[in-house]
Simulated assay, not measured.
Amino acid sequence: MDQDLSATKKATRAGAMHARAQAFAAPDRSARVTAANAALQGYLHQHFGGDLSAVVLSGYMPMRTEIDPLPTMRAHPGPVCVPVIEARAQPLKFRAWHPEVRMIPGPFGADIPAEGAWLVPQVLIVPLLAFDSAGFRLGYGGGFYDRTLQALRAPGSVLALGLAFGAQQVEAVPREATDERLDAIITENGVIRPAG
């Protein structure tokens, strides 16, 4: 990555962290999280219809100021899993999750299931720092979701849905050739389908 792009990403991350923290601290956060999860569940029902119970859904265990996907994960009628980081510069793996599963600390601070089957998700709910209307996201810089989406999209299809507060939208996410586009972004304001 060239120095200019690196500096731009660093500045965008800092601004995005601040915007997300403000949305997280807002007095109406609970209502925003509820609205975003309702929009996400509506999108999934619209996309898959009666087949939703056969769809493997990957969520994530929210940390810091990430918007909480657990309401959608709990409501999903089919198998649910969460990402597990096995090594740097590698795609994520996904372990089965349910509300009663015993969780343990994983790498980078996210809790992971202590045990359970490894699954291949058909839908990924993706956390992010910032997103734009073209469907690109800015993460923490590890490249885990980009590698994972590239690997999952190679043999077939996977639906990648960003979940965020509306305040996390930026005009344009600084990006590289390896950055994978999201299929949609869901916020408390509804569904954003990438333009262009």
Rank of each mutant, 00 (worst) to 15 (best):
E180C: 12
V101W: 05
R13A: 10
A14R: 14
L163M: 11
I104T: 13
P107I: 07
M1E: 03
P127K: 07
A89W: 00
I85H: 01
D179N: 07
A7T: 10
D68H: 03
Y60R: 05
G162L: 04
P91F: 02
A96Y: 05
L44H: 02
Q41M: 14
D68R: 05
L149F: 05
A23Q: 07
A54I: 01
A31L: 11
V82G: 10
G106F: 11
P99G: 06
F24R: 01
A117G: 06
G135T: 00
L138I: 04
F108N: 13
R147F: 06
G15N: 07
M63I: 15
Y43E: 15
A39N: 11
V55W: 01
P107R: 14
T65Y: 06
A23G: 04
D132S: 03
A39W: 08
A31I: 07
A35Q: 14
V123M: 02
R137F: 03
R102L: 13
Q46V: 02
A21E: 12
H76Y: 08
H76R: 06
R147S: 07
L70P: 00
G139D: 06
V126H: 00
P155G: 08
G162P: 00
R153K: 12
A89S: 10
V80A: 03
G15V: 00
S133Y: 03
T178A: 15
M1T: 09
A16G: 02
Q168R: 05
T72Y: 07
A7R: 14
A195Q: 14
